[in-house]
Design a protein around this nucleic acid. Structure first.
Lengths: 132, 132
DNA sequence: GTGCGTTATATTAACTTGGGAATAACGAAC
DNA sequence: GTTCGTTATTCCCAAGTTAATATAACGCAC
């Protein structure tokens, strides 16, 4: 079974979660993220970036694959690693292929945990009836 | 009993809802709003603006009271009225005091309904345990 | 040591959002 | 008709965010 319902496609640009393709004209929508000390730690786009890094093996390739500038992607990775209890990715500059970036087990857990949170949020939104 | 918990102070600039003053270092946070046809209909700031209009009797005074430009406030009111099933506010230009803006019953219901939604959302967030 | 593609870093440009200023229109009170 | 403060509308600017560009550092393969 595809998990495209509980876990939206990684290539989606939508970071706002609604109740899906509804016929209702009014729709309760929202965003969810995790902060640490007031700073954003994990969000939709950040987790998608982590998945792309896992898939492509480098920050630059991951950024290209989702139309994001390398600088922006690097900043996000830097901040996530800084806020995480342990690094989510390990980076290497130089080497035979120039280097690369790969997920740590902590990074894998962060992805999984965030999508679980998102799934709960989607269920919550689906229960809401927009009061017009 | 004050309602500052279930209904945050109207002057708050925070539109993001967390689980309150928690000692946990990681905090699940989020925003909630209502869309119609992909356009934002009601959000935290918009509903606060409606409350200020009810309190002050005009868009300009309401905007001043919350450090918002009249232009921006007018745009928000215009869009809310356009997306609402029936107008949320009635506006009058001219008159003894220059005119003014007041809430309609629909506007009152919109405020009440949105804060109920927010209260549910706060309860949902409070149930979440940030998975680090 | 040279080549390669990456990470790392700084600088600049473009875009978005909201604020400020200015002006006209409004309409009841006087 | 004058006054008043509001609504309504246009234009421009400031600030913050994101994208684009450029350059240096890195380290393994060869």
């Amino acid at each position: 079974m595809k998990d495209s319902v509980s876990r939206p496609a990684a290539h989606s640009r939508d970071r706002a979660l609604g109740t899906g393709p509804s016929v209702k004209s009014y729709q309760v929508t929202g965003r969810l993220w995790i902060e640490k000390s007031g700073e954003t730690y994990l969000s939709w786009g950040r987790v998608v970036l982590l998945e792309r890094i896992r898939e492509h093996g480098s920050i630059s390739s991951a950024a290209r694959s989702m139309g994001m500038g390398y600088r922006h992607a690097w900043d996000l990775v830097e901040e996530m690693n800084r806020l995480a209890p342990r690094p989510l990715v390990e980076r290497a500059a130089g080497g035979s292929h120039g280097g690369g970036t790969r997920l740590t087990p902590t990074g894998e857990e962060a992805i999984e945990g965030f999508w679980k949170l998102v799934a709960d949020f989607r269920r919550f939104l689906a229960r809401q009836r927009p009061q017009v």
